[in-house]
Design a protein around this nucleic acid. Sequence first.
DNA 1: ATACTTGCAAAAGTTTTGCAGGTTA
DNA 2: TAACCTGCAAAACTTTTGCAAGTAT
Lengths: 126, 126
Amino acid sequence: MKHSTQQRESILESLRMASGPLTPAEILEAARKRVPGMGIATVYRNLKLLLRSGLAREIALPGSSSRYELFNLEHHHHFQCRDCLQVYCLHGCPGGLHALTPEGFVLEEHEIVLYGRCAGCNLGYQ
Amino acid sequence: MKHSTQQRESILESLRMASGPLTPAEILEAARKRVPGMGIATVYRNLKLLLRSGLAREIALPGSSSRYELFNLEHHHHFQCRDCLQVYCLHGCPGGLHALTPEGFVLEEHEIVLYGRCAGCNLGYQ
DNA sequence: ATACTTGCAAAAGTTTTGCAGGTTA
DNA sequence: TAACCTGCAAAACTTTTGCAAGTAT
């Protein structure tokens, strides 16, 4: 992460603009709007660097590639719609997770994912 | 899931005996102890069937293949040790997740994963 | 000038699929 | 026997890597 390049800026911009965490393919698609010839290897390489430097984090969900989001937002969790598969960011956190942690274990972080139907997809079924 | 075979029984047995969710490779390794020639395609095919029939569920974690566990246990969550990468099952659930769900969304399920250091790995660092 | 980055293509790794042969009910 | 399953190998995907050329500092 020493140099700033068009490609890198475009990847960061795509993550900043996103309404939720993105897959590498989604990042590439978004970033190519600003830097047409960009290759997928560049996306993967930059994501690795962002993870290593603590600027981004990875969210793994069943059924698709991991998704990535910048780590500068306030602490939050995610909701995946089972219909449209979109991932939304949520506000807040239930807390109380230390109660789940076994004796002798040290809790450093946590991730919560809710699954269900988003508002848009519910409408279609009413 | 119409016929019972050695391979299928051995996969189920591996999942039953496991102390946490297993990756396909871990399932194959365990199942081969009973059915030596078993192939990885059989594991994947059976996992698909188990998922489709609701007997198993998939847990996706960053950095490795998805893990699978039988869906007959009581509701619980998981802890992954960042040192040894082992995944442990936890007891209980903090609840209060409806409060996170946005207006108009329907919450059907949820998954919580804690990350940190397990008791065994903590000892090594004291 | 030097170190860093990129695109491409190849390599490595994971998951799925077609098919011929074997097994279960 | 009819439907189902399996192993193998190939195919389809996803992610990583080597390298030569280009770019940022």
